[in-house]
Amino acid sequence: MAEVRLRALILREVDFGDFDRYLTVLTEYGRKSEILYKNARRGKKQNPAARQFCYSELILSERGGKYALRDADLVHSFFSLAEDIERYALACYLAELAGTVTGPDEDSPAVSRLLLYALHALEGKKRDPLLVKAAFEWRVLAESGYAPDLAGCGVCGQPIAQPPVCFSVRAGTAADAKCAARIGGYERLADGTLRAILHALSAEPQKAYAFALTGAAKEQFCRLAEAYAQYHLGRGFDSLQFYKSVAL
């Protein structure tokens, strides 16, 4: 039985049997893993560093590709998110989205960093939660192979020399106004929306949420991000519905 040490964010916990618990974690390298935490609910065996939204140093036993928790030391907890049901619900959605685009066989370190910075942004309460959500959706989809192509017109292949720039969620491409009108299915982007999308796609992970947007541009940026994530992943999210049920 091998010993494994790694840092990971605990995305989810599910009780199993009378005392055990399964932890879904996202490692610092962006791999999603399932870990058995035996006796997690038995008296003094409980470890507060092995709970949801803890970023912890984990010591694991590995046998046949299966992992069991030996010990956990806390690096940072996001427990304060639970004090605000809206931000907690949003964190659950971001965690589910990150878990959807990662797996046990391929590293996605950018996804791990983006999620940690998103949780820090929610924890600090200095960023608009809706903009954090949308920026995360745009960028995580891009990091997972679904990057929208905004470099030129996806219909005629020519550079878009002047605004407006139009965008299709289904095609994942931009188009100039003439081509968009001819093909259909494209929506004209507000200037602020386009700038925000480009920022979310290209900024360093720690700066991805460092922007402001208001009014119609904010509504469009957020609406398109959610639609883009659900369409290209081909699924909805229970945690998203929960978030919407509690969001003010």
Rank of each mutant, 00 (worst) to 15 (best):
L36G: 00
K66Y: 13
A174Q: 02
P164A: 05
P129K: 03
C179S: 04
Y231A: 04
V111R: 00
G99K: 03
E143F: 09
Y55C: 10
V246Q: 03
A118N: 06
S77Y: 09
L94I: 05
H232W: 09
A82L: 15
K126G: 06
D18T: 04
G43R: 09
D105L: 14
L240K: 05
R182Q: 14
Y186W: 12
R87L: 15
P129T: 08
E34C: 09
A229M: 08
E34T: 15
A216N: 04
L122S: 06
K207C: 14
S61I: 15
R188M: 15
K125G: 01
S144K: 02
Y37K: 01
A175M: 08
L130R: 09
L130K: 07
A203F: 10
F221K: 01
Y146A: 11
F78I: 12
V140P: 02
A142T: 10
K178D: 12
K244H: 14
G215A: 11
E62R: 06
A217Q: 05
G145L: 14
D18Q: 03
R113N: 11
R139V: 10
A68H: 02
A171H: 11
L6P: 09
G157M: 11
D107H: 07
R31C: 08
E28N: 12
I197Y: 02
A210E: 12
I197F: 06
D149S: 09
S168H: 02
L26I: 11
I35F: 07
L150Y: 06
S33W: 13
A91Q: 03
Q52I: 15
L58D: 02
S108Y: 13
I183S: 01
E204K: 08
S77N: 07
R235I: 14
Y93G: 00
R41E: 03
I59L: 15
G43M: 08
V140R: 00
A200P: 07
A196V: 05
